[in-house]
């Protein structure tokens, strides 16, 4: 992982408050656990029917029946629970899930999220993403600021099919921490070494800049 990405993941880990029930999306978001102390009091949820996700195990130590929703061989911790898929999403939809960290293709300035389909190119189905994005009490996105071609992912309006409307509260990128406010995007922190003109250039919508010194991460 590049240095900027590592710092983004470490910064996003601070979203997680003691006592929360949290779902970490497949990919980069699952890496935030590496930045939490081993005894941090949090309940991690996996869509396939597990609360209390323990450390990932190497193949020779793995239990063939114990994976997370991304297919990684994980483990239990004292107090873990298994349940079926209906119970798993009852937890998501009923407001028991305090926070989800998700990846994104596009985020609009009104909090719309697109992360499941690129028509004609990528259409594998959304799995549980729609319910996570629509029903978690707080939805936070973790993503590179631009896509692989350098196009901004933070936009005035999404062009791709939506996952959920108006649900993203905050974005952690390799360039900045950005809040979604009723007035649109608002800068919270800048990654070290990123200038305001660079951030504006890489953002596809207006972004409000706070007065005074801008904190860095």
């Amino acid at each position: 992982m590049s240095d900027a990405r590592s710092r983004m993941v470490a910064r996003a880990a601070r979203e997680i408050a003691p006592g929360m029930v949290v779902n970490l999306g497949i990919g980069l978001p699952t890496k935030v656990v590496n930045y939490l102390p081993a005894d941090f009091p949090v309940c991690l949820h996996s869509e396939n029917g597990l609360t209390g996700i323990g450390p990932t195990l190497p193949h020779d130590k793995a239990d063939r029946n114990l994976i997370d929703a991304g297919g990684a061989y994980v483990s239990t911790i004292p107090g873990s629970a298994f349940f079926d898929s209906a119970v798993s999403f009852a937890l998501v939809r009923s407001g028991r899930l305090d926070l989800t960290l998700l990846g994104a293709f596009e985020i609009a300035q009104n909090g719309d999220l697109a992360n499941w389909k690129i028509p004609g190119k990528f259409s594998p189905g959304a799995g549980g993403a729609i319910e996570l994005a629509q029903k978690a009490r707080r939805v936070v996105v973790m993503t590179t600021h631009c896509d692989r071609k350098g196009n901004p992912k933070l936009l005035e309006a999404c062009t791709l099919p939506l996952t959920a409307k108006g649900r993203v509260a905050r974005i952690y990128s390799d360039m900045a921490v950005v809040d979604v406010t009723p007035e649109g995007f608002a800068l919270v922190e800048l990654a070290e070494g990123v200038s305001l003109p660079e951030l504006r250039e890489a953002t596809g919508a207006p972004i409000a800049i706070p007065a005074g010194d801008i904190p860095t991460f």
Binding site: E47, S85, A86, S88, F89, R93, A126, I130, E131
Partner: peptide
Amino acid sequence: VEFCAQGILAERI
């Protein structure tokens, strides 16, 4: 192929 949200597939079943 018909795609269904994961928890909704569970509830439909």
